[in-house]
Design a protein around this nucleic acid. Structure first.
Lengths: 145, 145
DNA sequence: TATAATTAAATTGTATCCAATGTAATTTAG
DNA sequence: CTAAATTACATTGGATACAATTTAATTATA
């Protein structure tokens, strides 16, 4: 009478999600160390390479991270010279984060990373697309709640 | 001439994986706090509810975690009385982790958690299956390298 | 308009993660 | 047999994550 046991690692969706996420992020360690970034700093810079200027709240919504995580990351990136942090004059509560010339230059160094990593993840084109689609349905659901 | 930019958050598979993973794990915080576990402790206990006894290396392979992460987690679980840690007599390097009576009892308290969480993740049955399958192809690929 | 409620960041405290290194036990080679 | 290599786990140090709280600014309301 082998009944179904929901408390098995293999029966949980959260676990492969958690494990695969960390495994993939580990792949970034080498390439990112070469350009002196951590993964969190990297995704933060990706938003800034795209937006140029953004406040902490919007950045947090984009990255699914709160100020508890972002504040120290942003302070480090500022110290490295890649961004500047300036309070908004219209609303002193708001902190604007803006990319610097140095930050822009860093993008060139990072240019090869996506390709480099992509070749390490052996997923069929169709599976990669499916994965991407399903993950975003989860995220959209979350961000709207 | 808007050329494709691989360095966009939306063009990376790693990011939704990382974000979705954390979002899902956050769902566990409430239910797990009620029974006094963290997420890492929870997945560790899941392996032990299944295996009863396992060494640190095998546990780490199962969870994709190394001793740097597991050692402190296991010490905490031992202090709570849910597991015991005993060196193997055949090979003194090996540490065996075994579930206790208290640890077994904890499983009853955790029994409702999977259902509770499942209802929070609004994924179609088919998508959940696909996600599961694709994540495991990534993990199997990793664990064999 | 005062006061209450809300909001945006920062801070605090706890628990990971993980790379790198250390240590002790065991195996392997010469 | 014995030095070298390997293995399993522990330790260390740095960087997150995140819940909870605090602080300061702004907005809403009585």
């Amino acid at each position: 009478m082998a009944e179904y046991d929901a408390l098995k690692l293999d029966h949980q969706l959260c676990f492969p999600l958690y494990a695969a996420s960390r495994e993939i992020i580990k792949l970034y360690h080498g390439p990112l160390t070469k350009i002196g970034l951590t993964y969190t700093q990297y995704i933060t810079m990706m938003v800034l390479w795209e937006e140029k200027k953004i406040n902490v709240k919007s950045l947090g919504k984009r990255l699914f991270l709160d100020s508890g995580t972002l504040t120290p990351v942003l302070k480090t990136l500022e110290k490295e010279g890649y961004i500047s942090r300036i309070r908004s004059s219209e609303d002193e509560r708001v902190l604007m984060v803006e990319i610097t010339r140095e930050g822009e230059k860093l993008k060139e160094k990072a240019a090869e990373i996506p390709k480099e990593i992509g070749s390490c993840i052996s997923l069929k084109e169709q599976d990669a697309k499916e994965l991407y689609r399903i993950l975003y349905t989860i995220l959209e659901n979350r961000n709207s709640q």
